[in-house]
Design a protein around this nucleic acid. Structure first.
Lengths: 208, 208
DNA sequence: AAACAGTTTAAACAAGCGTTTGAAATAACG
DNA sequence: CGTTATTTCAAACGCTTGTTTAAACTGTTT
């Protein structure tokens, strides 16, 4: 395997586990078994490495996500909110084929990116992959037309918060669930617990 | 004002803004206008300072929260989930009297604690303030008896995620809402947007 | 074989971190 | 007043961080 990919794999694993700020280049290059200077040689800087790790997943995910949401939007009858959110499941789980633990890693990275370096990921997603967000908003609008643009804005951010936060601590949660309730949980179980929650949250009655 | 309190105030502000790992003691003591060594003299270490910042709020909040939840639990008729979550509002907003921007700062700190140093805040809350969590679980159980212990576990963590994540980026969200929708939003508005969302999420129908 | 671009390497760099030190300044008390 | 404690201060400590350097090595091209 190429040095570049060894670095990407090691960085992905460590970033997901300990956050961007919490992971040093020395840890990454040590795990990847390459020289310390390799990161700056191949990627230029740590920040560029972070972007590269995220891009590798987003380039895989975003066309699948757009396609899945397009199907939802083109249905004759408006979708339910559960259907809208369920449109994410198959593309997300496909990351497990693309790479071992891909789904879990990507979602954890998403959470790290949101909280670690303030605003960076929001910028990254909205500027680099606007199509996904656009299509998602349209789908939600079809499912719940009474929601104003402002309400959608807030509830989508609440959804983002729920998903991203849960996923960034999903390993710990799965461990607790395992020891307290003796149930073997995997990432797709977690997804299936999140969907009814956020669907109900977005679909909550409006108060005036 | 005492050196100790100057440090606590500065640390609180910076921690909320940039996280625990992202804030250096030099930034704190510089903003507080005290000597660098003062932190280690008065608190022993950075970790102890973090605990002190959190404790100052928790000691103010937790008795009010327990009292408010006790009222909810002792009602004749079981509460609705919205009522349960609304029990948090008054105690949380009371932090604004106790300290300027207290509510917002505390909730942001909560978010930081959850994501910054993995598991630390969970330990902090469950060991130092178990009463609040216990009473909260009982209240939810009364409101939605069909929920199993496992379901409650998951949905409370989803709730925690929603709240904590939203609050840790609430400043950015309020800015966007302001510029995109021209509405002046404050922290209590945010709270009132979160409550219906999480109440509906926790109350989502069970799938088998 | 010689020259070349691409890559890897060990070593050093400057800057920042949390923490410690020992002396100076201040406060408290007999 | 003089003598303890307590608190402040500048300076340094040892360590880690991201990044850079220049030499060594690799494989390909002339």
């Amino acid at each position: 395997m190429s040095t570049k990919n060894k670095i990407l794999d090691a960085a992905e694993h460590l970033f997901a586990d300990k956050g961007f700020n919490g992971t040093s280049l020395r840890e990454i290059t040590s795990l990847a078994d390459v020289n310390l200077a390799a990161v700056n040689y191949h990627f230029g800087s740590k920040k560029e490495l972070i972007k590269a790790v995220m891009s590798r997943y987003m380039n895989e995910l975003s066309p699948r996500l757009e396609a899945s949401l397009t199907v939802i939007c083109q249905q004759e009858t408006p979708p339910s909110l559960v259907e809208v959110f369920s449109a994410f499941v198959e593309p997300l789980l496909s990351l497990n084929v693309f790479k071992e633990n891909g789904t879990s890693n990507f979602l954890q990275l998403l959470g790290r990116g949101y909280t670690d370096s303030q605003g960076f990921l929001r910028w990254f997603l909205t500027t680099q992959y606007p199509g996904v967000i656009e299509k998602f908003v349209v789908a939600v609008q079809r499912a719940y037309p009474e929601l104003s643009a402002e309400d959608i804005f807030w509830r989508l951010h609440l959804t983002m918060g729920t998903v991203v936060f849960t996923m960034s601590s999903s390993d710990a949660l799965m461990d607790i669930a395992q020891s307290d309730f003796g149930q073997q949980i995997d990432i797709s179980d977690v997804i299936n617990k999140v969907i009814p929650f956020v669907a109900a949250g977005v679909g909550a009655p409006l108060v005036h």
